[in-house]
Amino acid sequence: MDSHTWTTVADVAAGACLLGGSFLAFAAGVGVLRFPDLLARMHAATKPQTLGLVLVLAGLALRIRSAPAVWALVLVAIFQMATAPVAAHLVGRAGYRTGKVPSETLVVDELTADVRRAEAERLGRAGTPPVDPEGTGGA
């Protein structure tokens, strides 16, 4: 294969990556808009968004084909993969602690159950009888 063919192959692959990445980013946007609560929205904002961005970067790298630019894109991808879960964790945690997550929309909520149990134990030590958190504490 000559260099012309390789250029065409790289261009087609770049196009596929860019389209796939754009699709995932679009789906992430739709998810953020449609999902009912904060935590479900964070799912949309972390997973398809991360892979979508990585695919767009891969498409760019295949199209640009110059080493310095490609290395910068690799750095962006690494930092995105490393920071997106941390950001989602912090937003989820803050939302949960400030009561932005309605517990009744969840099928099970073991965190609230554990927090209630811990509080009941604390009160129990202080002299009040401990409250059983509606039987969910068994797990």
Partner: peptide, 9 residues
């Protein structure tokens, strides 16, 4: 509608 979620430990 979106599926129902859960928080597990």
């Amino acid at each position: 509608p979106a599926p129902r979620g859960a928080v597990i430990g």
